[in-house]
């Protein structure tokens, strides 16, 4: 009985730890989710005309965002969005989308 509850307490402790990891990450989760309004929930687009973001290689995402921001890459709307974020945010989002399956 006590062993079970000890396990539970360890489990709760782990939960607290993972919660702490989440906390540093909430800003990234929210801005990544903001991309999904146009690019599809979980980074999976429902439209062939709009690229999905799930599983995109981090370097590909980074390069695209920087080129949208500088104007080096022609786009309809993405320069306006890319200009609103920092490089640190791009890196965090790149890692996030790369890890989405």
């Amino acid at each position: 009985m006590c062993k079970t509850s000890l396990k539970m307490l360890v489990g709760l402790f782990m939960l607290v730890l993972s919660g702490a990891v989440h906390a540093t990450d909430m800003h990234t989760q929210v801005i990544a989710a903001t991309c999904m309004a146009c690019h599809g929930p979980d980074g999976k687009s429902r439209s062939a005309f709009m690229p999905g973001l799930a599983g995109l290689e981090a370097s590909v995402f980074m390069q695209a965002m920087q080129e949208f921001r500088s104007g080096a890459r022609e786009a309809s709307i993405m320069k306006r969005h890319a200009a609103g974020y920092t490089n640190a945010e791009f890196e965090a989002m790149a890692a996030y989308f790369a890890a989405l399956k």
Partner: peptide, 22 residues
């Protein structure tokens, strides 16, 4: 860099539909 397009075009008509679906 925020703002709006001064004219409409066919590409953005397609993007509008993709936006809605997603």
């Amino acid at each position: 860099e925020g703002g709006s397009t001064p004219t409409g075009d066919e590409r953005n008509f397609k993007f509008a539909q993709a936006w809605a679906r997603n």
